[in-house]
């Protein structure tokens, strides 16, 4: 790797330690998915505006009034176009990520398992109540694992509940474990709420960890990774 040119370079500049934190597949999946999630939430809310209820049409009891400002697509047909286009990007990038994690074994770093439960509270205390930072040699702390794993859970949930709503005649049996066809719409909404809960926390943590950390999700390389101090 070290070429002559870099050897000459190095006479004049201090070397920089970088770690390849996020492989290409993960970065592409992350950013495609990030865009898709926003489009799907916005257009989903516009779809919901067409019938803002989980009950019957007659009599109709509206559950919530979604402001047009946060809805995408302008009208039901337009919103469905966004939804039916970006659902493929969402599912595609999600599967791409999950398959990659399984194939490389990286899922071990990030999947939240029962043994991580005990580490959640100390980490939450550190983040929210300024408690001591729990020592950890792992790539992700238990709270991170919980957050990231929950997005996979909500992603799978939104995909399956969406499938039941989209194709109930073909997959009506899939509605059964959800509690029936009408619950698919409720679970779909709840999975959206899961993403809405995840995103602010995620963005705040990204802000707190600064440009260097953020940049590593773009180029993969992180400068002076904290675990090498």
């Amino acid at each position: 790797m070290a070429t002559n040119a870099s050897a000459i370079d190095s006479k004049n500049a201090a070397p920089i330690t970088v770690a390849y934190e996020h492989p290409w597949v993960v970065r592409v999946a992350h950013w495609l998915n990030a865009v898709a999630v926003f489009v799907l939430i916005g257009s989903g809310l516009q779809v919901f505006r067409a019938f803002p209820s989980f009950g019957p049409k007659i009599p109709q009891k509206n559950f919530i009034d979604i402001p047009k400002l946060i809805a995408l697509g302008g009208w039901l047909g337009g919103a469905l176009q966004w939804h039916f286009t970006f659902m493929w990007i969402f599912i595609g990038s999600g599967l791409m990520y999950v398959i990659y994690q399984l194939a490389t074994g990286h899922w071990r770093q990030v999947l939240f398992l029962p043994r991580d439960i005990k580490g959640v509270w100390p980490m939450a205390r550190h983040y929210f109540l300024f408690g001591p930072k729990p020592a950890s040699a792992a790539a992700y702390n238990p709270l991170q694992k919980l957050a990231y794993t929950s997005t996979i859970f909500f992603g799978a949930m939104s995909m399956l509940t969406g499938l039941v709503m989209y194709k109930p005649a073909q997959f009506w049996w899939l509605a059964w474990p959800m509690g029936g066809y009408h619950f698919a719409r409720i679970w779909h909404f709840i999975s959206m709420c899961g993403f809405v809960a995840f995103i602010p926390g995620h963005l705040i943590m990204v802000l707190l960890h600064g440009w260097n950390n953020f940049y590593s999700m773009i180029t993969g390389w992180k400068r002076d990774p904290e675990y090498l101090d």
Binding site: D9, A13, I16, P225
Partner: peptide, 10 residues
């Protein structure tokens, strides 16, 4: 993760 020491140019 792969770790490297590189020059700024690299």
């Amino acid at each position: 993760e792969e770790v490297r020491d590189v020059t700024p140019r690299e």
